[in-house]
Amino acid sequence: MTPVPEGVPESAVLALRDVRIRDEVNDREIVHGVSFELTPGRVVGIVGESGSGKTLTCRAALGILPEHFVVSGGSIEITGHDIAGLTPARWVDLRGGTISAVFQDPASYLNPSIPVGRQIAEVSRVKKGLNRRAARHRALELLAAVRLRDPELVYGQFTFELSGGMLQRVLIAAAIAAGPKVLIADEATTALDVTVQAEILDLLADLRERTGLALVVVSHDLAVVAQVCDEVLVMRSGEVVEQGPTAQVLYQPRHEYTRLLIDEHEQYGLDRFLDAPAADAPEVDGSGDHLGAGEKELDRVR
């Protein structure tokens, strides 16, 4: 992968145009038109609850829709090539090498009876044609790149010996092993503790900056998406109810549902304190300094 050249307009590595997905058994359209373009180093976020169609949309882009589900309208292009009618062989090339993904439950994507390092090395052997030795070396590099502290140790460990956060790092290492241009992270931090979630999100941001990796971050939590994304799509019942640059969606939401998601954070979440109105926050002085002592302290640590 190469760093993003500055000033040069980038062509989209992933482009969805009015993508519709149909359940052929029940003869119902499940996803009613999703469009976005992803250029290198950019991050698009999809927010929605279970059943909103966000995961189906991702699966369509990966060519792994469940049985009986088909893309019934619109188009999906990966690095400029329409994926409609791709042969299975061509898909195998594309997955891992160009587009890759990590999901919510990392342990279920790894073989419990093979050390995790060998499973990462296997990706380089199959996709890059590296020999055993080179593949092992590459796997160790990747384990270091996802900031696992002792790559040699982790290489030989089994899934049951690793925490959820470590497993998700291993999965990310495997997902980027063949140098994809796009990584889809579908609820990849949902099952993790908050501090571990932040570590994974920081890692993704880091990869994006260092390698120009483009990301699709899918979450039920608007705040997670707000944290890392340039553009946000809010989905509900298969429909994109709101779409735009992150700041616009957060500060000028147009749809009632987006407002509900924002309200939840502002009334019941941390935002209640972080940006409290003056009347409700006696400790805020009149100097316009809205930072609490804690944030100042954090500033000092930076």
Partner: peptide, 20 residues
């Protein structure tokens, strides 16, 4: 501090990457 600095909020977490 790490916990508060890691919790995602709409206005981005209280700490940045380097702070965390």
């Amino acid at each position: 501090r790490l916990l508060v600095g890691s919790a995602p909020t709409l206005r981005s977490a209280a700490a940045d990457r380097a702070g965390r």
